[in-house]
Amino acid sequence: MSANPPPIAGFFPRDRTWHPKALTPDYKTSVLRSPARPLVAFGNTLSETTGPAFGHDMLGPLDNDLTLNFARPGMSAIGERIIVGGRVLDEAGRPVPNVLIEFWQANAGGRYRHKKDGYLAPLDPDFGGCGRTISDDKGGYHFRTVRPGPYPWPNGPNDWRPAHIHFSVFGHGFAQRLITQMYFEGDPLIARCPIVRTINDPKAIAQLTARLDMNASVPMDALAYRFDIVLRGSRSTLFDNRMEGN
């Protein structure tokens, strides 16, 4: 892990059987929004192996605290106080430092601060629902928030999303760009959710399920959930045949 890693020659191919397919009819919106023609593949060029980098200096002090970053002075968001954290790694197990991670979620009642969300649960005047951070030099990250509530959504006659936090993650190349969702250990709605079930492999679903981490919790303050994020691995230009990547 030198300060100037060698240029990336290419990323490990994406396993498109591990990711959800584009067309997943039980998640109805995918039906008209899924490309039908085969994707065209080509080896990575500079256009894919480079990508935007963000500096820690762009972060505000409350960017990684959703309990406070929208709250009125002296107030904080309503709900179960939690700390979500983990590491950003690549498929070779190497930490991915200095990448921007953005997250958004419903409030503790399952309501989003969005004009298209008409769910009965009330808005919390002290909760906006967005935050961001940048992984540290070991790939670590964490943020504070409240545990989001589950919410109903128009798909089947009675579909509910499990409690979840949306994540957007940058890598070091634009081809690593990823959006996913984090679920909570033990939630019985996970197995029932048509969006979760766009993923075929139970091991892949488990990878999106954060675990309660009592060791990272703060007594009398917040429980902690551990959520590691894995980005595509890469080959370097200088060491194309190094088995462990770099």
């Binding site: 396993d15 990711h19 996913t180 969702q181």
Partner: peptide, 23 residues
Amino acid sequence: PLYPFRESPSQTAGPYVHIGLTP
């Protein structure tokens, strides 16, 4: 497995992606 980890599987950005990315 040769490699210890697999890429986190994707999930849709959903209808409220703008809350997170262009609040």
